[in-house]
């Protein structure tokens, strides 16, 4: 059973068909890239996969069950995401940002929080441990008490990934993880995504940086004008004439 299966996903905004009949399958442990020129519908497709948009038609299942149609439930189900324009909780500390990510995996209610019973204490401790471990994982431990908005750009991206991982996802969706990064930071991002994969989390990423995608992904899908043009290994996609045409314009 594939981890994520999208069949015929279509999203229309009024007269505009942003995504039409896109299929995508992600197997356990894979890194899959989605590329395409600007306006190809990548982010809209992503939003459909995370419950932020409801597809006009089509079917998405995650671990065999239909994907819920609300972002918070999608996260609960085990799909986490980052945003193209980083969306951290700016006035919370780095550590608190990750702690928020633990939200769904804990159950403390109002009364437990007021009473601070054993469950509250256990959950708080576990949450702190997990958060610290994740900060270690992305290399932000020394900055744990800093405000998120004071981190530099690359660190903010890392924090977003740590925060998403805190939700215990089976699948992590990265929306342009290297946008605005310099080559050094991009190289570090490759290592980080590999490390995420090594943790047993599958990854789907949208990217513009071809080298990054082809060097990292097991499989790549190309979206053009809302439709999936090609899907295959990086080698297959790189040598496909239609892809070259779509990117460079037809002669």
């Amino acid at each position: 059973m594939p981890l994520l299966e999208a069949q015929g996903v279509t999203k229309r905004f009024g007269g505009l068909q942003a995504v039409s009949h896109v299929d995508l399958t992600v197997e356990e442990g894979e890194i899959v890239g989605v590329i395409g020129p600007n306006g190809a519908g990548k982010t809209t497709f992503f939003n459909c996969l995370t419950g932020m948009e409801t597809p006009t038609s089509g079917r998405i299942t995650f671990r065999g069950a239909p994907l819920p149609s609300r972002p918070d439930r999608v996260t609960v189900a085990g799909v986490a995401r980052t945003f193209q324009n980083i969306r951290l909780f700016h006035n919370m500390t780095v550590l608190e940002n990750v702690l928020v990510g633990r939200h769904t995996r804990n159950r403390t209610g109002v009364l437990a929080a007021i009473g601070r019973g054993p469950r509250y204490r256990r959950e708080e401790r576990d949450a702190l441990d997990t958060a610290r471990e994740l900060l270690q994982f992305v290399g932000l431990s020394p900055l744990a008490e800093h405000l998120a908005k004071n981190l530099n750009y690359g660190d903010q991206r890392r924090l977003e990934i740590a925060r998403a991982l805190a939700t215990d996802p089976g699948l992590l969706l990265l929306d342009e993880p290297t946008a605005g990064m310099n080559p050094n930071e991009t190289a570090a991002a490759v290592d980080l995504v590999r490390a995420v994969q090594a943790r047993g989390v599958s990854v789907v990423l949208i990217e513009h940086d071809m080298r990054f995608v082809f060097g990292l992904c097991d499989r790549v899908a190309v979206l053009v004008q809302g439709e999936k043009l090609v899907e295959g290994t990086p080698q297959e996609v790189q040598s496909d004439e239609r892809v070259i045409a779509a990117y460079l314009g037809r002669p």
């Binding site: 995401r81 945003f83 969306r87 909780f89 919370m92 109002v110 007021i114 708080e124």
Partner: peptide, 25 residues
């Protein structure tokens, strides 16, 4: 007590960025 708990953090997260908060589940 609420402020220092998971619930307080969720509130502040919503105040900071509602969409991101929902993406945190």
């Amino acid at each position: 007590r609420l402020n220092a708990s998971r619930i307080g953090r969720a509130w502040v997260a919503i105040r900071e960025d509602e969409l991101a908060a929902s993406a945190m589940g």
